[in-house]
Amino acid sequence: MQRVNMIMAESPGLITICLLGYLLSAECTVFLDHENANKILNRPKRYNSGKLEEFVQGNLERECMEEKCSFEEAREVFENTERTTEFWKQYVDGDQCESNPCLNGGSCKDDINSYECWCPFGFEGKNCELDVTCNIKNGRCEQFCKNSADNKVVCSCTEGYRLAENQKSCEPAVPFPCGRVSVSQTSKLTRAETVFPDVDYVNSTEAETILDNITQSTQSFNDFTRVVGGEDAKPGQFPWQVVLNGKVDAFCGGSIVNEKWIVTAAHCVETGVKITVVAGEHNIEETEHTEQKRNVIRIIPHHNYNAAINKYNHDIALLELDEPLVLNSYVTPICIADKEYTNIFLKFGSGYVSGWGRVFHKGRSALVLQYLRVPLVDRATCLRSTKFTIYNNMFCAGFHEGGRDSCQGDSGGPHVTEVEGTSFLTGIISWGEECAMKGKYGIYTKVSRYVNWIKEKTKLT
């Protein structure tokens, strides 16, 4: 034993070699072989497995989906700052455009905790909710729209109204504003409101030439003092309507412009014939205590009207009353817009006519005020429907199939267009061939041609 100890002390290297040989010859039971080890760690190889990531292109799944990435790591994937920024906006807080917040056709661009709407022409605001041009839906104005110097929408209202708090709607500024039905039992019968379409306001006024200088022999019209197929109006439903009495009662109609003036057809009036105007009328054979009678003290036909040349060209006249009318729910003026808007309103496509005229061709006159909704007829169809001249200051309205029309005794009465609950004068009943005849239409004086003249002559002093 002493000898062994001496050998170990003198030859430590020998001992180490012996131990190493023993270990190498022993069977290893701690580690699995290569094949079995792979069965336990069965993990798919990654895209760049075996390579240094710093030297390969980034992978979106590896960089940002398996674990949260930084902007720089995302930049490695896209290799483009702009594309990385677009991805980053949604990656950080989701897609803010998912709810489609942009209105009126706006395009949404996502941002971090926010979004941006790219608005089409005519709109602005956070969600493109603000109209900035009158060309689109009248700028959301209830009545009139004008573009300011910086191309912003400025709404306005006709006389007797003021802008509401929203700067879009119009509200009454006087007790009985024009064009409004205020009798409670008839307010439910107000005709369907007309909503502004998209309009090209630059070209809204037709490029028409008034044929002022045409000389033409007097034409022989049949029954051209021209509501057939209409309905009984309720008291106060058309408070701007008046009836004219002269040699015979209810020979023509008219509309209240203001307390002192009536507008009617020029062919209705004769110099030297006494005319009485009755406002607030409903049943011409009954006294309903809503009527107001006034005498006409002055007749002003349009300066281009000449019955000797043509009885229905420039067929418009103004009547001055001896005493002002007292405005109330049964006696209310009709609204008159400017030339541009009167023309736009007419193009809405349908209007209402009213009167006490004959209820059928050569038949009896109506006792109760009649009204009828009539569609506008395109000019080409209008011209083809008659052998008589249709001037540019006239328009056609009615039904091709016949059966409904204005008729004798309705002449001078109103053709009105309702705009968001307020009625505007767009025409004056003038003439036609018979009444409600198939293929024939009622012919009306186009008020847009005469609004400046009306307003100039009827100013209240």
Results as ranks from 00 to 15, higher is better:
340 E>S: 08
433 E>A: 14
406 S>A: 06
65 M>P: 09
245 N>G: 06
187 S>W: 10
135 N>M: 06
81 T>V: 14
236 G>S: 05
296 V>D: 01
366 A>Q: 13
200 D>N: 09
155 C>W: 00
156 S>R: 07
233 A>T: 08
311 K>L: 08
249 D>C: 03
2 Q>P: 12
9 A>T: 10
255 S>L: 04
356 W>A: 03
160 G>V: 00
358 R>T: 14
209 T>G: 11
110 D>M: 05
388 F>E: 11
283 N>S: 08
176 F>R: 05
44 P>H: 06
360 F>L: 13
378 D>K: 14
121 F>P: 15
110 D>L: 05
46 R>V: 13
304 N>G: 09
411 S>D: 15
437 M>Q: 13
313 N>W: 09
421 G>F: 04
23 L>G: 03
215 T>P: 12
226 R>V: 08
77 V>Y: 06
344 I>E: 10
215 T>G: 11
5 N>H: 12
351 G>W: 01
248 V>K: 13
312 Y>H: 10
410 D>A: 09
162 R>V: 10
11 S>R: 13
174 V>T: 10
99 S>P: 09
5 N>I: 13
244 L>Y: 03
316 I>H: 01
373 R>C: 03
332 T>R: 13
156 S>D: 09
239 P>M: 01
380 A>V: 08
102 C>F: 00
116 E>S: 13
237 Q>E: 05
25 S>P: 08
194 T>M: 13
373 R>M: 08
186 T>K: 12
328 N>Q: 02
302 H>I: 01
456 E>I: 11
370 Q>D: 03
227 V>W: 11
160 G>F: 02
43 R>P: 14
223 D>R: 12
9 A>M: 07
282 H>S: 09
212 D>C: 07
371 Y>A: 14
26 A>Y: 06
181 V>T: 11
459 K>N: 15
137 K>I: 04
240 W>I: 01
108 C>Q: 00
209 T>Y: 11
196 F>L: 12
102 C>M: 00
4 V>A: 11
365 S>V: 13
303 H>N: 09
323 E>K: 14
147 N>G: 09
248 V>R: 13
411 S>K: 13
149 A>P: 11
22 Y>L: 07
99 S>T: 07
185 Q>H: 13
188 K>G: 11
159 E>N: 08
278 V>H: 05
161 Y>N: 00
363 G>M: 08
399 F>S: 13
388 F>V: 14
437 M>H: 08
33 D>G: 13
68 K>R: 15
346 L>V: 07
401 E>C: 05
44 P>C: 03
387 K>T: 12
293 K>D: 03
377 V>P: 02
283 N>A: 07
135 N>R: 07
360 F>A: 10
135 N>I: 05
231 E>C: 08
422 T>K: 07
179 G>F: 02
31 F>L: 15
298 R>G: 05
355 G>M: 05
203 N>E: 10
177 P>Y: 00
390 I>R: 08
286 E>L: 13
274 K>Y: 05
459 K>G: 11
362 K>S: 09
340 E>K: 06
17 I>V: 08
367 L>K: 14
91 Y>Q: 15
461 T>V: 12
161 Y>H: 04
387 K>P: 08
79 E>N: 15
312 Y>S: 04
243 V>E: 02
27 E>N: 07
131 D>P: 15
383 L>D: 06
66 E>M: 05
427 G>K: 00
164 A>C: 04
459 K>D: 14
17 I>D: 02
214 I>M: 08
184 S>D: 13
3 R>C: 13
261 W>Q: 00
32 L>G: 15
461 T>W: 08
185 Q>P: 08
302 H>A: 03
54 E>M: 10
457 K>L: 10
104 N>E: 01
116 E>W: 06
149 A>C: 06
264 T>V: 04
333 P>M: 02
297 I>W: 03
41 L>D: 15
414 P>R: 00
406 S>W: 15
340 E>W: 08
318 L>Q: 00
164 A>H: 11
386 T>Y: 13
458 T>R: 02
121 F>L: 13
81 T>F: 05
42 N>S: 11
335 C>S: 01
78 F>S: 15
288 E>L: 06
444 Y>R: 00
180 R>V: 04
10 E>V: 14
178 C>L: 01
407 C>N: 04
363 G>N: 06
11 S>F: 14
102 C>T: 00
458 T>Y: 02
345 F>N: 00
124 E>I: 05
170 C>R: 01
152 K>E: 06
425 L>V: 00
281 E>N: 06
434 E>C: 13
208 E>P: 11
338 D>P: 11
320 E>P: 00
167 Q>K: 05
203 N>F: 07
144 F>D: 00
271 T>R: 12
7 I>S: 07
214 I>W: 08
250 A>N: 12
450 Y>C: 02
121 F>E: 15
295 N>L: 06
377 V>Q: 08
71 F>M: 15
237 Q>N: 08
107 S>Q: 13
340 E>A: 10
220 S>K: 12
213 N>V: 09
30 V>M: 13
116 E>Y: 06
130 L>S: 11
208 E>T: 13
397 A>L: 01
396 C>N: 01
264 T>I: 03
427 G>Y: 01
354 S>R: 10
452 N>L: 05
329 S>V: 05
395 F>K: 01
222 N>S: 12
333 P>N: 04
22 Y>T: 07
168 K>D: 02
377 V>W: 03
52 L>C: 04
